[in-house]
């Protein structure tokens, strides 16, 4: 089985994003960028399936600027076999990302696509579901546990009330949640080895996908600010405040 793993280059999760004063977006100049944390979990899961003998090849894909090559090299250093960069400096929305991924799936014929549940920059949480719809495949979203057996995949999903288990026919799309696994760090020798793994560069046009945005962002602003309040002396002071509020 071949597994396709889309990975997005995003602002590092430790960085506090700053809104630009002119309302045009978030300032990404000189900001540390990394692989979307959920995508690291996807790469890890694909590697574990390969290690367990359930998969033969892992192909990582990123849609983004030339610098997304770094993100792909990280995936290769973790253990992906080859990579495809679909290079563009435009912002590509989830629907267009899903269309590009569909075109790659048509070419590569993987049996499983593992995406993150959410990119931590746009917080859209939609690409995996859209891809599954475009392909007419089943979707195991917010995966907590994944088990591949023959022609089916069983996915335990994190849902609002707890956990839900579904069984999907393969091929299928899975989207990863935080508890699926703990991603490994790439070792130095593997980082060196990743430099010689194959990486193809394409463009959205190669796949015949129109990436014109459907949503126009007219402004990006600051959220309402919260001020730091009062540091209280002791528990009694807190009890008094809670009593004032009428909760005790």
């Amino acid at each position: 089985m071949k597994i396709l793993v889309p990975v997005k280059r995003v602002i590092d999760y430790n960085v506090k994003p700053r809104v630009k004063a002119d309302g045009s977006g978030v300032d990404l100049a000189n900001v540390k960028m990394s692989m979307n944390p959920f995508d690291e979990i996807s790469v890890e899961e694909a590697i574990r399936l390969k290690e367990a003998g359930k998969a033969e090849e892992i192909v990582a894909v990123s849609i983004g600027p030339a610098k997304a090559t770094e993100t792909l090299r990280t995936a290769l250093a973790m253990g992906a076999d080859r990579a495809i960069l679909v290079e563009t400096d435009d912002e590509v929305e989830p629907l267009a990302v899903a269309k590009i991924l569909k075109a790659i799936v048509d070419e590569e014929s993987p049996r499983l696509v593992i995406t993150g549940k959410q990119a931590i920059d746009d917080d859209s949480n939609q690409t995996g579901q859209m891809l599954a719809a475009l392909l007419g495949w089943g979707q195991g979203t917010f995966a907590n546990t994944v088990e591949v057996e023959g022609e089916a995949i069983t996915v335990k999903r994190e849902i609002d009330g707890g956990l839900q288990t579904v069984k999907l026919n393969l091929p299928a799309v899975v989207t990863t949640d935080l508890r699926l696994n703990e991603p490994r760090y790439a070792s130095l020798p593997n980082i060196m080895k990743a430099k010689s793994k194959p990486l193809d560069t394409k463009t959205p046009g190669d796949y015949g996908v129109d990436t014109t945005p459907r949503l126009t962002t007219t402004n990006v602003g600051e959220p309402p600010k919260r001020e730091a309040g009062e540091i209280l002396e002791d528990v009694d002071a807190l009890v008094a405040k809670l009593k004032d509020m009428g909760v005790a």
């Binding site: 809104v19 978030v26 945005p213 990006v220």
Partner: peptide
């Protein structure tokens, strides 16, 4: 909200 609610985007749909 985008970026974990650190920014609020105003978006207009063309669909």
């Amino acid at each position: 909200p985008i970026y974990a609610g650190n920014a609020i985007a105003t978006v207009e749909s063309a669909d």
